[in-house]
């Protein structure tokens, strides 16, 4: 526990130092934040354009899809804020800089995660919050304690799921540097998939990216519960409240994969 508190306070210091450094370049920061906002907004524009042609998408209304989109994007945006720099991890391995993390008195995963923090990524968070506001405002949700609880747990669970997927797939870099771009199919691909109703996708895509890589638990299942909507796929209702459990399981798998990969690095060497 003391160990955790110490790590968190160290992380807070790291973030504070970074934010100070980034705010030195105000124009850069402003432009890149706005750009992040707009890039993220594009996906939602696509949804709006689709709904200007049809009233429903696989039984989901525009506000319902907006809720899916907002939950998925918010989870993705926070994950991106915390560990978006993991895209550069293969370069870290290639240049041998991972060695430096092994000679410091902290866990390697902690050091990798805290290795950067780009405040401009808040642009995406802002955009997702706006859409969430729109969705909650438009949908007449019949609030009950369990629905509120499920909604509150959705984004933290989503962050843990995305983060776990991200960490697990970048472990490929311990074996091959070229694997990075292929991993985008899981990270960015999964994030894109989660913005839409699972039931519009073909079965094998659902099984693979929805359940095996558990993207369906990021927004689809919890949204069904919050909306009191019948699952068009007819899957057991317990799945709709299972996201936190799935997230913890994903985290366990990811940290196991990470430890295995680091042990491989130490015995193979680079």
């Amino acid at each position: 526990m003391a160990e955790l508190r110490e790590s968190l306070s160290l992380y807070r210091l790291l973030i504070a130092a970074r934010v100070r450094a980034q705010l030195q370049y105000r124009t850069s920061f402003a432009i890149e934040t706005v750009a992040a906002f707009l890039v993220s907004f594009l996906d939602f524009v696509a949804i709006l354009v689709i709904f200007s042609n049809v009233p429903q998408l696989g039984t989901w209304s525009v506000a319902q899809v907006a809720l899916l989109y907002a939950l998925a994007t918010l989870s993705f945006a926070f994950t991106d804020l915390v560990i978006g720099h993991l895209d550069g991890f293969p370069a870290l391995i290639r240049d041998g800089n991972f060695d430096l993390m092994l000679v410091r008195p902290k866990g390697t995963l902690f050091q990798v995660i805290t290795g950067d923090f780009q405040l401009r990524r808040l642009g995406r968070v802002a955009q997702a919050l706006l859409v969430l506001g729109y969705a909650l405002n438009t949908l007449a949700i019949d609030w009950t304690p369990d629905r509120a609880l499920v909604l509150a747990l959705t984004v933290p669970s989503g962050v843990l799921i995305y983060g776990s997927v991200w960490v697990a797939v970048i472990c490929i870099a311990f074996w091959t540097v070229e694997g990075r771009e292929a991993a985008n199919a899981f990270t960015y691909g999964g994030a894109f998939l989660a913005q839409y109703p699972m039931n519009i996708f073909d079965r094998w895509l659902r099984r693979f990216l929805g359940y095996f890589v558990p993207m369906a638990f990021i927004a689809y299942f919890p949204a069904l519960h919050v909306l009191g909507k019948t699952d068009p796929l007819g899957l057991p209702a317990v799945l709709q409240v299972a996201s936190p459990v799935v997230a913890l399981a994903a985290a366990v798998v990811a940290s196991t994969v990470w430890r295995f990969a680091v042990r491989h690095y130490q015995s193979a060497g680079g």
Partner: peptide
């Protein structure tokens, strides 16, 4: 990306 003094301060915490 950090000033040297910030790096040293962070290391102080990392090494307790």
């Amino acid at each position: 990306d950090l000033p040297l003094v910030d790096s040293l301060e962070l290391l102080r915490h990392m090494y307790r």
